[in-house]
Amino acid sequence: VTLFVASYDYEARTEDDLSFHKGEKFQILNSSEGDWWEARSLTTGETGYIPSNYVAPV
């Protein structure tokens, strides 16, 4: 399981994006799509795309 933590807050801009807060942890589901990764929030359980430059490895 690949875990990352949010370095910043992010507000979703499309329905496919995932909003999150600094400190929130994610399981990365797919990182092969470039700068936007499909992730599941371990806080909310929601799945969506997050900007990879807003998160760091745990």
Rank of each mutant, 00 (worst) to 15 (best):
V1Q: 13
V1E: 12
V1T: 13
V1C: 15
V1D: 12
V1I: 12
V1G: 13
T2D: 10
T2Q: 12
T2F: 11
T2Y: 12
T2N: 11
T2C: 15
T2H: 11
L3T: 08
L3V: 13
L3F: 12
L3W: 11
F4G: 04
F4C: 08
F4S: 02
F4Y: 15
F4Q: 03
V5L: 06
V5N: 02
V5P: 00
V5S: 05
V5C: 08
V5R: 06
V5A: 07
V5I: 12
V5Q: 09
V5M: 10
V5H: 04
V5W: 06
A6P: 01
A6T: 03
A6R: 00
A6F: 02
A6H: 00
A6L: 01
A6V: 03
S7Y: 13
S7C: 15
S7D: 08
Y8R: 12
Y8D: 09
Y8T: 09
Y8C: 15
Y8L: 10
Y8M: 13
Y8H: 10
D9F: 05
D9I: 03
D9N: 08
D9W: 05
D9M: 05
D9S: 09
Y10L: 02
Y10C: 05
Y10I: 02
Y10E: 00
Y10W: 09
Y10M: 02
Y10Q: 00
Y10N: 02
Y10G: 00
E11Q: 13
E11I: 13
E11L: 11
E11T: 13
E11H: 10
E11R: 09
A12D: 01
A12Y: 03
A12L: 01
A12P: 04
A12C: 06
A12G: 11
A12S: 10
A12V: 00
A12T: 04
R13T: 13
R13Y: 07
R13S: 10
R13D: 08
R13G: 08
T14C: 15
T14W: 13
T14R: 15
T14H: 14
T14A: 11
T14I: 06
E15V: 11
E15F: 10
E15I: 11
E15M: 11
E15K: 13
E15Q: 12
E15N: 12
D16Y: 15
D16S: 14
D16F: 15
D16V: 13
D16E: 12
D16A: 14
D16G: 15
D17K: 15
D17G: 15
D17L: 10
D17F: 15
D17M: 14
D17W: 12
D17I: 12
L18Q: 02
L18A: 01
L18R: 01
L18P: 00
L18F: 08
L18H: 01
L18M: 13
S19Q: 04
S19R: 04
S19T: 09
S19M: 03
S19G: 07
S19C: 05
S19N: 06
S19Y: 03
S19D: 04
F20A: 01
F20D: 00
F20L: 05
F20W: 01
H21I: 12
H21Y: 11
H21K: 15
H21C: 14
H21V: 14
H21N: 10
H21L: 12
H21P: 05
K22F: 06
K22G: 04
K22Y: 06
K22P: 03
K22S: 07
K22M: 08
K22E: 07
K22C: 07
G23L: 03
G23N: 05
G23V: 00
G23Y: 05
G23W: 05
E24V: 04
E24H: 07
E24W: 07
E24N: 05
E24Y: 05
E24R: 00
E24S: 04
E24Q: 06
E24G: 02
K25D: 01
K25C: 12
K25N: 06
K25S: 07
K25V: 15
F26Y: 01
F26L: 08
F26T: 00
F26R: 00
F26H: 00
F26M: 05
Q27D: 06
Q27I: 15
Q27R: 08
Q27Y: 14
Q27M: 13
Q27S: 07
Q27H: 11
I28C: 04
I28H: 00
I28Q: 01
I28V: 09
I28S: 01
L29K: 05
L29T: 06
L29G: 02
L29N: 04
L29M: 08
L29C: 08
L29Y: 06
N30F: 07
N30W: 08
N30R: 08
S31K: 13
S31T: 12
S31N: 12
S31C: 15
S31F: 15
S31M: 15
S31H: 10
S31A: 13
S31G: 09
S32K: 10
S32T: 12
S32V: 10
E33T: 12
E33G: 14
E33R: 15
E33F: 12
E33S: 13
G34T: 12
G34D: 12
G34M: 10
G34L: 11
G34K: 13
G34V: 11
G34P: 14
G34W: 09
D35R: 08
D35N: 09
D35G: 11
D35P: 10
D35C: 13
D35S: 09
D35L: 12
D35E: 12
W36K: 10
W36H: 06
W36A: 05
W36R: 14
W37L: 07
W37M: 06
W37T: 02
W37P: 00
W37C: 04
W37H: 03
E38I: 15
E38G: 04
E38K: 13
E38F: 15
E38T: 11
A39I: 04
A39F: 04
A39Y: 03
A39P: 00
A39V: 13
A39C: 05
A39S: 02
A39E: 01
R40H: 05
R40L: 11
R40K: 11
S41N: 12
S41T: 03
S41A: 06
S41M: 05
S41E: 02
S41Y: 02
L42I: 09
L42V: 08
L42P: 01
L42H: 04
L42T: 06
T43F: 09
T43C: 13
T43V: 09
T43R: 13
T43M: 09
T43P: 01
T43Q: 08
T44A: 02
T44L: 02
T44S: 09
T44W: 03
T44K: 03
T44E: 00
G45W: 06
G45N: 07
G45L: 06
G45K: 05
G45M: 07
G45C: 10
E46I: 10
E46R: 15
E46M: 14
E46G: 07
E46Y: 10
T47R: 10
T47D: 04
T47Y: 08
T47C: 10
T47V: 14
G48I: 03
G48F: 05
G48R: 02
G48N: 01
G48A: 02
G48E: 01
Y49I: 09
Y49W: 15
Y49Q: 08
Y49L: 14
Y49P: 01
Y49T: 07
Y49M: 14
Y49G: 03
I50K: 00
I50E: 00
I50R: 00
I50G: 01
I50F: 01
I50Q: 00
I50S: 01
I50Y: 00
P51W: 08
P51R: 07
P51A: 04
P51G: 03
P51L: 07
P51Y: 08
S52A: 13
S52V: 08
S52G: 07
S52F: 07
S52C: 13
S52W: 09
S52N: 06
N53M: 12
N53F: 10
N53G: 11
N53H: 12
N53V: 09
Y54K: 07
Y54A: 14
Y54F: 11
Y54V: 05
Y54G: 06
Y54C: 12
Y54S: 11
V55M: 09
V55G: 03
V55D: 02
V55F: 09
V55Y: 03
A56P: 03
A56D: 08
A56G: 08
A56M: 14
A56Q: 14
P57G: 05
P57A: 09
P57T: 05
P57Y: 06
P57L: 09
P57H: 06
P57N: 05
P57I: 08
V58D: 09
V58K: 05
V58Q: 08
V58R: 04
V58W: 13
